[in-house]
Design a binder for these strands. Structure first.
Lengths: 339, 339
DNA sequence: TTGTACGCGTTATCAG
DNA sequence: CTGATAACGCGTACAA
């Protein structure tokens, strides 16, 4: 076992001073060609690499970014992480992932852990509990300490920081419009409670499209589930009772499960009933029939978030100006609607 | 913006020495009750938290663990990360995630980045390119430096370190046996090239079960795809030509796609043809019909890996003894087979 | 009871 | 051209 070699080791071995070694390795003009060659050769031989921790301490820059998300076993978050990781890596940053598991306390603990010097900035999406309690003190503390934060997807307007969201309202609006244009008469919405910022926005888009149409809104066609968890019984009862000819769902799982239910009743998709979901994940792609979805471009979102964060980290500027980037959703047409 | 406060700040403010502050905060017996109270009150007021980086440098322990995996947009890896994260967090460790994207070079670069002091140990699953090249020097270098490594799922026997795998051979054996017991006569296997350690093991289990049966092995019933990427045309041609009555697939996607193909031909599942896949993800659960799978218990795998790694990190012992933990797979019965 | 000095590994400044 | 010194933030053995 050959342990890592340090500047000091090289200096001792070559009988020069530590600072000479340091400069030689940086190809400083101050050092003679002879010494430089000698040092560099030795360093290469013993595979010298500067210690990140020491450099972090000195520079007060860790080159790490903290990502705090509610859940990782979700296609959307997973694609966001990939986007962040790719971009951050290209700029020399590592990504520390922490899961809040939708819990306020975990979110707070994780942030505190990372905020004590482990990271240069945060990228995060709020846990449902945090959105429900509407308590954002942990975020405010961090930003007050001068640690930059980028919120994505599940955001709040109560914290001053950069934000990245997709236009959920627009996505739902376009999807609902699509149904209307196709002549659908009973357009249902399966969503969750409004404290989740995304569900709230999607519901708004759905309402807007219907309000603009001659049909107007039929409140009984809206099913509000308490959380993103699949409540099979509730969906089944709702679909049986309302018998819609089109359904917009705020996620893939609601949609795919609903499709199976109506198929079991003998309905044909998309002839008798059409479906559109949110999130362009594996489920939508491989469902039978494949599911038309409002794609959220998670990877893009991750990249944009990472770029905003790193730009802020590396900008010397003290100006406190924050922006909110709104990405456009796209409708990915598949076989669950006529086309 | 109130920046982080340091021991030095407190010392200056209270006009005592830095070490007094340090000791006072640790409730050291050496310090008078008066001073301790004064210091602790001040520290609480200004929300003092020790700087992780400084502690890392001093202790030569970062309390970070590096996780290097080929892909994060895959249910299995995602559950493993969750398991790692949960366990590691409970023991005070953070998780740095790096993606190799199935590339050898990225794997090497990521490991080098992290090995320079950023982490106390690695948990990793090999990229397909690495397994194909069978070049493990980057792993060997790291272990030689004394950095503990735990390999999971996609492992190699050429590196001496702890390993965690599931018994892929057993899983495939049990699945194939199930088909045989149900009287299936033409049992096909859709797999990938053998350089992927998991595919190789699964193929072995399939072969073993058939060899033990009166049927024996029909090589033409085995489809070997070059990678985990879905090759729709190849699968279609294969299924049309061979017309099997049971299919074992090494992942969910192959299985779900195959199911759709045979359904389009008018075959009934599971009456005419049955399916079993690997990986218990969302796809299997919500497919139509739902897919019977060999569950790999990713979360458990993550926990076990994290425990092995942290135990090794924290054990003073220099003894170089490595173990391989083999987890048992489970067959999750769903509607793609008779039951 | 408190403070001084040193070390973790690196870099930057300044002196020789 | 080379080296000594200080500093990043903390902890601790040792001195006062």
């Amino acid at each position: 076992m050959k342990a890592k070699i340090t500047l000091k080791d090289i200096a001792r071995e070559l009988e020069v001073s530590i600072s000479t070694v340091s400069k030689a390795l940086k190809n400083s003009e101050e050092i003679s060609r002879d010494t430089k060659e000698k040092v560099q050769a030795f360093a290469k031989l013993y595979n010298y690499k500067p210690n990140n921790i020491a450099i972090s301490l000195k520079n007060k820059r860790t080159k790490n970014i903290g990502v705090v998300i509610p859940d990782i076993v979700h296609h959307f978050f997973t694609t966001v992480i990939r986007g962040i990781e790719k971009y951050a890596n290209a700029r020399g940053y590592n990504v520390i992932v922490c899961l809040s598991e939708e819990s306020f306390d975990k979110e707070v603990i994780n942030m505190e852990m990372l905020a004590n010097g482990s990271i240069d900035g945060f990228i995060m999406s709020l846990s449902s509990e945090t959105q429900e309690k509407a308590d954002y003190n942990h975020l405010k503390e961090v930003t007050e300490q001068g640690i930059p934060v980028v919120l994505f997807d599940r955001i709040t307007h109560e914290v001053e920081c950069d934000k990245v969201i997709i236009d959920d309202e627009l996505g739902a609006y376009q999807a609902t419009k699509k149904f209307i244009d196709q002549g659908k008469k009973k357009i249902a919405l399966i969503t969750t409670d409004d404290y989740l910022s995304v569900s709230e926005a999607r519901t708004r888009g759905y309402r807007k499209a219907l309000e603009e149409s001659p049909m107007g809104i039929d409140e009984s066609l809206i099913l509000k589930l308490p959380s993103m968890e699949l409540d099979e019984a509730a969906i089944k009862a709702f679909l049986n009772k309302m018998d819609p000819d089109a359904v917009l769902c705020v996620n893939e799982i609601f949609a795919v499960y609903s499709m199976r239910l109506v198929q079991e009743k003998g309905l044909r998709i998309p002839e008798d009933i059409s479906f559109i979901g949110f999130t362009d994940g594996v489920l939508s792609k491989y469902a039978n029939p494949s599911l038309t979805v409002v794609a959220q471009h998670g990877e893009k979102m991750g990249e944009v978030s990472a770029k905003m964060l790193i730009d802020k980290i590396e900008s010397e500027a003290e100006e406190e100006t924050y922006q909110t980037k709104i990405l456009e959703p796209t409708l990915v047409i598949r076989d669950s609607i006529a086309h």
